[in-house]
């Protein structure tokens, strides 16, 4: 069980870590000051959640590694985040589309995790769910505003959706690691979150005058670590360079 629990915690913590880093890449260069601040704030929430998930993962693993070790000293193949969150920022619209696609899943996942049989996971989820409720409110509002904006903003959002939608499916794939945690009552079965996700996403897309591309094709390989996209390695060269260049450097 402890192996599955460790992997489960890495999946939770790596999603928030990698997305937090991606969103943080906007710091100082967002289109307007308010958006810059909003993105940095969301990144901060996600990194804070990462500290809790990865600290627990490190403790469960019991090999003396810390949350920082897990974040800064693993290589791409050891990361367990879904492919969606490692995709590049693109333009502002693409960043917000990626955020919406993840936030909607994240909220449903955290709501279910507040009932986890593992008290510590339930406590982290109860803390994070408040923040993520707020993230989703903003990302869905912004997707609607841009989709229902000018023909230029609508077309950019549609392009972003076409590009990112094939990465949404991976969030709902249940694999043997998940099943072991599901059977122990630790996490919800990811596949059971799909219907609520589709309903919520459809409502937002309708208001935004957007339509997801047809077909059910979904990229996979992120949460299992089997095959990340090429973008993750590039992201890690930025995120981890300090500890790679100056091993053990302290703040």
């Amino acid at each position: 069980m402890s192996h599955a629990l460790f992997e489960t915690l890495l999946r939770l913590g790596d999603n928030t870590l990698i997305l937090g880093h991606r969103v943080g890449e906007w710091c100082g260069i967002a289109p307007v000051l308010e958006e810059d601040i909003a993105l940095a704030n969301m990144a901060l929430d996600l990194i804070g959640q990462t500290q809790m998930w990865l600290a627990l993962a490190a403790e469960i693993e019991g090999k003396g590694r810390s949350a920082d070790d897990l974040a800064m000293l693993r290589d791409a193949w050891d990361f367990r985040n879904v492919l969606l969150v490692e995709q590049p920022n693109g333009d502002f619209g693409q960043t917000l589309m990626r955020q919406f696609l993840f936030d909607q899943f994240h909220l449903l996942q955290l709501q279910a995790l507040t009932d986890s049989s593992d008290q510590r996971i339930a406590a982290i989820a109860a803390k994070a769910v408040k923040e993520v409720t707020y993230h989703l409110e903003r990302s869905s509002d912004t997707v609607i505003a841009l989709g229902d904006g000018t023909s230029e903003s609508n077309s950019r959002m549609q392009t972003a959706l076409n590009k990112l939608w094939p990465y949404a499916g991976e969030m709902f794939v249940t694999d043997p690691i998940d099943l072991e945690s599901v059977e122990a009552g630790i996490i919800p079965d990811p596949s059971t979150l799909r219907d609520a996700y589709m309903d919520a996403a459809e409502k937002v897309f309708k208001l935004a005058h957007l339509a997801p591309p047809e077909g059910n094709f979904a990229h996979s390989g992120g949460k299992t670590g089997f095959r990340h996209s090429e973008h993750l390695g590039h992201l890690l060269t930025q995120m981890q360079w300090m500890q790679r260049a100056y091993p053990g450097a302290q703040w």
Partner: peptide
Amino acid sequence: KISQFGSTPCKAH
């Protein structure tokens, strides 16, 4: 409302 986020995580603008 100007922005849902503000100068610190606990505030909006």
